[in-house]
Simulated assay, not measured.
Amino acid sequence: MIRLARFGARKQPYYRIVVIEKDRARNGRSIEIVGTYNPRTNPATVDVKRDRIDYWISKGAQFSERVQKLVSKLSVPAAA
């Protein structure tokens, strides 16, 4: 699954977009970091490694709902 992992201090969230097994904890050990999301900038910044996302989608990974919305704004192909 490709989803967000929260980092940053209290009330100062910063997220990593990670590839992780679906049943692991939110900030558990991830397989690979494929991007970042910072909602505190104006506008919010999203940086992704498109080639790695495409690779993991081809291997069967699925986006979480939030990550799906973030990457769809960047025109990354969605999971089929």
Rank of each mutant, 00 (worst) to 15 (best):
S72T: 05
P39R: 12
N38Y: 08
I20A: 03
A5W: 06
L74R: 10
I31F: 07
A5T: 07
V76N: 01
S75A: 12
G28M: 03
R50S: 12
V19K: 14
R29S: 09
D54M: 13
L4Y: 00
I17Y: 05
L4F: 09
W56Q: 01
A5F: 09
R6H: 12
T36M: 06
Q62G: 03
R40C: 11
A5N: 06
R40E: 09
W56F: 13
L74N: 01
V46F: 03
Q68F: 06
V71D: 06
S72V: 04
V34I: 02
K22Q: 09
P39N: 06
S30M: 10
D47L: 14
A79Y: 06
V46K: 02
S30V: 00
R40I: 14
G60E: 02
F63M: 02
Q68H: 07
F7I: 13
V67C: 02
V19E: 00
R29G: 13
G35Q: 01
V34E: 05
S72Q: 11
E65W: 07
V19F: 13
P39G: 03
L4R: 06
R66T: 15
K11C: 14
Y14Q: 05
I53A: 00
T45V: 14
P39F: 11
A44P: 09
K73T: 07
A44Q: 03
D23E: 04
Q68V: 06
L4I: 09
